[in-house]
Design a protein around this nucleic acid. Structure first.
Lengths: 154, 154
DNA sequence: GGTGAAATCGTAGTGGT
DNA sequence: ACCACTACGATTTCACC
């Protein structure tokens, strides 16, 4: 269904979303209109969800990354739902996953400094109870990309 | 230097990068040309770095997230550099951080399944030696956003 | 300094071959 | 896939505060 050209279109758009359609068409060896139709269909199919602007974290003064691993003893649906809504409400939390293993949940936060981290931490424990929280400060970001590999398409 | 309107512009663009300038101008209460100039200056200052297309991980067949915590005894610059280049080369690794604490490094990978995870794992250990590797499989993505909070701007 | 309105220009999007 | 055309939104200009 999706061929090599679709993959390449997505690969390029994952790195630069406002490349002109004509340029992209040249890169993948397609006419502009053919390329345009493919982009639209990739968007309609939902493979491409949206286009966003990325921000320099340092310049936005949230250069500090903190990972927070939390565990809970309350393994109910209700707990999960209120955890989920707490996470959604706190903009400093940019990622959150439920994990296998003994960690339960892993959060990634971006904050200006430890003081703000502490404030967010307090917000969190005010809303929910955790049996264990441990945090790891990111000293250096070695890699961060929003681009996912396109070579596993079915 | 940056006022409330600049913040709001960035907030909107972080969620939808191809909103027409006129719409954005209305939202922040500016004329289209004034809004346009601010966007350009935000891009030139480097606060807005670029615009990218986001992809549905499931539909790209990389629905599985694995966190890999690695430790090393080789704390040299050389080791770090070859680690960095290994990470850069492997597209399944989408994030990598050097941490405080006893974890040393934390990687986030996106893969189709455990088989592919294992293959990537083998690639990694073929290129570098680690004293310890532990992995955590993400069972559920509770939150993932590329948008960082704009309320800490200096 | 920054703004807003109008004029221009370029490219996305449409339709036909 | 290509071409011609249209329509809209991105830039530019300029007068203004």
């Amino acid at each position: 269904m999706l061929d090599q050209r679709d993959r390449r279109i997505v690969e390029y758009l994952q790195h630069d979303a406002d490349m002109p359609v004509t340029d992209l068409a040249d890169l993948v060896g397609l006419s502009a209109s053919a390329c345009w139709r493919r982009i639209k269909s990739l968007e309609e199919s939902g493979l491409i969800t949206r286009r966003v602007a990325l921000v320099d974290r340092r310049k936005a003064n949230v250069g500090m990354t903190v990972f927070v691993a939390v565990r809970t003893s309350r393994h109910s649906i209700e707990w999960l739902e209120s955890f989920r809504s707490a996470i959604a409400d706190i903009p400093e939390i940019v990622e959150a996953y439920r994990l296998t293993g003994d960690m339960d949940y892993l959060l990634r936060m971006v904050v200006p400094d430890v003081e703000v981290y502490d404030a967010v931490y307090k917000q969190l424990i005010a809303r929910l109870d955790f049996t264990d929280i441990s945090s790891f400060i990111g000293m250096e970001e070695l890699k961060y990309t929003t681009a996912v590999p396109m070579n596993y398409l079915i």
